[in-house]
Every structure is written in C-alpha cells, then in structure tokens.
Design a protein around this nucleic acid. Structure first.
Length: 517
RNA sequence: GGUCCGUUCGUCUAGGGGUUAGGACAGUAGAUUUUCAUUCUACCAACAGGGGUUCGAUUCCCCUACGGACUACCA
C-alpha cells in the first residue's frame, strides 16, 4: 500500500529563485532523501506572458550550487517526461474534458469586461465574497445558463471561452496538512476557478493536480501562499476520482521581509542590503527596460553548505542544541513534524555567522585555495601553496568570506603605501627610527628565520637602544603592514621573510623621516 | 470586506499544566591577545491581551487584538 515517496519542486520560470523558493526545494529534497524517495523538478511555465528567458537555467544552477540533486526533471529526464508544462500542453485537455463530461466543470464565455462589470456590481452591492461562484454563475454567460444549442454554436464558431471548475454550493472541504493539522473550508467561500484558459493552456490548478497525479507525487511541500487554494485542489482530486492517491500536503510558513512586514519577494533583492537570491541575477527592469543586477549568495562569498545550513534552520530545527549540519546530517535529522507553523524573518547576522563557522572548519590547505583565488581576482599570482597555507592559517579566525583574505591580508603581498597617521604621530620618533634602521641591518643575523630568533634579535637591538618592546611594537606593525590590525606581528614577519621585512622597515624609516625628531 | 493561517527574548527558536521559561545570533561588559579579530566568562532580553477549564496555566478551550497569505484567463 505504501507508495514510493516522490516529491517535486515546481517553480515558475518568471525570474530568479529567491531564498524562500530555495528553502522549499531544500525541504522537498531533505524529505525525499530521508524517506528514500525521488526528487522531481517540474517547470510550471503555463503563463506565457510571464516567462523569463534564463530563469529555468538559473533555477537548475541554483539548486545544483546548493547541493540539491534532482532525480527527474527537464534536463535530467525521467519516466514522466516532459517535465515542462508548456511541453505537456496537449495532455491537459482530456482531463478538462473529463471534468466537463462529469459535470464538474463548465464552459464560460464571459469577456474580461463582463467579469469586471460583475465584480463591480457585486462589490457595490456589498456582497460578502464577490466571486464567480455557485451563486453568481447563474447570471453569467456559461454552459450552465445558456441553452445547449447556443453553447454548441458558440464553441463551433470559435468564440473564446475558458473552462471553470463547478464548485459545489454547500460542502465542507477538509484535508489534513502535515504542518497545520486539519484545515476545514466551506465550499461556498471558494470560487469557480478557471481551469483552462482561452489560449488552451491549463491554469496552475489544473496542470498542477494532473501532473502531480501522473507523476505519482506523494507529498506536496509548498509555500503557505498555496494554502487558500488547497481546498480547490482537494476538490479536483475528488472530481477526478483520484482521492486514494492524493498526495499529503505540507504548507510551509512564509519567509518574511526582515524590515517591515510582508512576504519576501523577488523585488526585495535590490534594497535590503543583502542578497535574497542564491546566485547573482542579471535581469531587465520591467519598467525602465534597463539591465539590472541582483546580488547572490554565491558571488558574495557564501559557502553553499553554510547557506543551506542556515536556510534549513529558517522554519525548522532538530530539537537539539546542534546547529551545524552537513547536508547528510540534515537529511538524517529532518522531519516535517518539526517544521514550525509561524513565519520567519530573515536574519542577516546569523547567515554570516554560519559562513564563518564553515570557513573555520575547513583545513588550511582548502582555505589556501580560496585565498589563492581571492588573490588572483586581485591580480596577485605567484604565491606558493605553502605560503598561502601559512597565511590562511593565520587569517582563518578573522574572515567571514573568502574575499576577506584579500581585504584583510593584502599586506602579506603588497608593501604598505601609507601608514596609520595616528599611531605614527604617537609612537614614531628619532629613537624608534634609529632602532628600526639598526634592526633592519641585523636581520641577516636571524638564523634560522623563525619567530623565536626574530624576537631574540629584536630584543637585542632594542636593548642596545634603551627601548622596550612595549614602546615600539605598534610602530613596527605600522611600518610592516601600514595599519593596526592583523595577526601576531612576529608571525607576519616570519611569513614575510628576511628580505621583505628589511625592505619594509627601511622603506618606513625613509618615508617617516619627518617624524623622527 | 470575505476566507484561511499564525502569535515565546531585537532575530531564529526549545519547551510545555507546577521550569530560576533553555539555546543560538545580535547587543553590552570583563578576561586573554602589547593591535584588531578569535576564544572564554558574565550580563541584557520573551510566553500579545481578556475570559474560561483547573488546586495550578505560557502550555488546553473561547473571544479580542495584531500580523500574514489568498481573494486574476499569475503561479
């Protein structure tokens, strides 16, 4: 009796996928893997007006970046191909006909203008729910009101029409949501939704139910915005006689805008100060026709594992104190029962924290590769793997993103062009300058070149000049790095090497001669 | 307006008839680091309100408030 678990992620290719969509895909994937089932990607492109070129490729790339593997889909193929609804168009008509024949649907010939008039009339009359429904359909131009021969004539004349669901007038529709429990809605609050548009394309509602049935979907995990139409979908399963294999529903809480209120939307991408998309998206502004770029987590330097880990925790938790989860651990721990009912706001601090945790957990060698990439991006090549590993080790506790390796550690590769003025004004003087000049000449006495020896010679030099380390270390740091931040100074010197250390000290002594008074 | 969903620290959340209501992020303070960051320690901080039920409700029920989604020939 138990059917093999099959879930689907069914986005519309209307633009880039935002993080809420990614989370929906992730939860579907986690459940599929947890239960040993299959994960499908189905492209719901029944609205030709909103189709955006490149969106589907973006979705595939984004899921792949996140490590969400698709078992069946438009590029992956599978036993239920095609997986794009536009390519399935011929299949839907027969199902609409089935509903028509059974009296669960009807033809409607009303023009958009007529529909507007109807809605205006109803709202002017203060009708509680102004809809095309069991009550109002009797006053409209459709096959429930028109004589049979007139309907036939209209159809034969090629008059435009839609097919609407015939929602029963008085019936309680109920279903059990895996997250919310029993949801009960009276059919009188539902409207006669269009199932087949006048262009011959099915609407979401028809295509979705037919495809979920045909593709043997067992669990429908989708956003809460679908909750209001779930009763219609339940009704459709009943109309088709597919109740016994109706999937289980789980409506996920929404992701809210971090500022203000309302659900997070694609449009929030450009104004929140942090990405809402997994990958950078190059789009075109609908109003101005100008090209736009929306930032992405990948390009911002987020590690996919960190991003996924964070996203998983937005609306779900394992019930333990553990927060760092690999994808495999998420699969093990995930249950729909532990998904929360209430919506979540995005926390931009927490996602950074996750990234830091993942970065620090990486071995130095792996970090070195990220560092090398960051350097190459900034025109620095010819850094040995060994040196990169040393620097990665020194810097790993101080970076949030791989790009920080360049921002925070460029003094390892480029001599300072300027020196922190406040520190120089306070700490640089003739005695310090003289001691540093002296130290530079003694650097070849440091044998071998390691921190202990560097320190020993420095102490000797300072003693000869009647100075104490505490008086000069800050000045020395500025001379070497230009600034006041960074890892242990001796470790920096050791990494820099004797020659570079000497060059920098001498350069600083020369450049700062004006302060040596 | 109507239908549906929701409501525990600023944020993500745990918990659940009797708890000092726990954790994480953020914030603050201190220790360590002759810098900064890290790390460690401490602190700050929440059960929306009102009625029930009960010996006892943050927890169960109802109402109100607030928030949200939906209300298209969009998904």
């Amino acid at each position: 009796m138990e059917r093999p678990v099959r879930v689907r992620f069914a986005p519309s290719p209307t633009g880039p996928l935002h993080i809420g969509g990614v989370r929906t895909a992730l939860y579907n994937y986690l459940l599929a893997r947890k239960l040993g089932g299959k994960m499908l990607l189905r492209i719901e492109d029944t609205d030709q007006n909103r189709f955006v070129p490149g969106a589907e490729a973006y979705i595939q790339e984004a899921l792949a970046w996140c490590g969400i593997q698709i078992d069946e889909g438009p590029t992956q193929g599978g036993p239920h191909a095609p997986y794009r609804q536009s390519e399935r168009k011929p299949m839907y008509r027969q199902y609409a006909d089935q509903l028509l024949a059974a009296g669960h649907a009807y033809y409607a010939f009303d023009t958009p203008e007529e529909l507007d008039v109807m809605r205006e009339r109803l709202s002017a009359a203060k009708v509680p729910n102004p809809q095309y429904n069991a009550i109002t359909r009797g006053q409209m131009r459709n096959s429930t009101t028109l004589p049979e021969d007139e309907v036939k004539a209209l159809l034969e004349s090629g008059a435009p029409y839609v097919i609407r669901a015939k929602i029963p007038r008085k019936e309680e529709v109920r279903f059990q949501d895996m997250i919310r429990g029993w949801v009960v809605v009276h059919s009188s609050s539902l409207d006669d939704k269009v199932l087949m548009k006048s262009d011959g394309m099915p609407t979401y509602h028809l295509a979705n139910i037919v495809d979920d049935h045909l593709m043997e979907i067992t669990h429908v995990i989708r956003g809460e915005e679908w909750l209001p139409s779930a009763p219609l979908h339940v009704l459709l399963y009943r109309f088709f006689g597919w109740e016994t294999t109706m999937p289980q529903f789980a409506h996920l809480p929404l992701l809210l805008k971090p500022d203000g209120t309302g659900k997070l939307s694609k449009r929030d991408g450009d104004r929140l100060g942090f990405p809402v998309f997994p990958l950078e998206w190059h789009g075109i502004d609908a109003e101005t026709n100008e090209p736009t770029i929306s930032s992405g987590y990948r390009e911002a330097g987020y590690l996919p594992d960190a991003f996924v880990n964070f996203l998983a925790f937005l609306g779900w938790n394992p019930g333990t104190a553990q927060e760092i989860f690999s994808m495999d651990e998420l699969i093990q721990a995930f249950t729909i029962e532990r998904v929360s009912k209430s919506p979540a706001k995005f926390d931009q601090h927490k996602v950074r924290w996750f990234n830091e945790q993942y970065l620090r957990a990486k071995p130095d060698e792996e970090l070195a590769e990220l560092l090398l990439t960051a350097l190459t991006d900034n025109g620095i090549t010819e850094v040995s793997a060994e040196k990169a590993t040393q620097i990665a080790h020194l810097m790993k506790e101080r970076v949030t993103f791989p790009g920080d390796f360049w921002r925070e550690a460029q003094y390892f590769f480029v001599a300072p062009a300027s020196y922190d003025e406040a520190i120089i004004a306070k700490k640089w003087n003739a005695a310090v300058s003289a001691a540093f000049a002296d130290y530079a000449t003694r650097l070849d006495q440091v044998q071998p070149w390691n921190q202990a020896e560097i320190k020993r010679i420095l102490d000797e030099t300072l003693a000869a000049h009647n100075l104490k380390p505490g008086q000069v270390m800050q000045a020395l740091r500025v001379a070497i790095t230009g600034g006041m931040m960074g890892p242990d100074l001796l470790a920096i010197l050791e990494t820099l090497g004797a020659g570079e250390t000497r060059r920098r000290i001498e350069a600083a002594v020369a450049a700062l001669a004006g302060f040596a008074v």
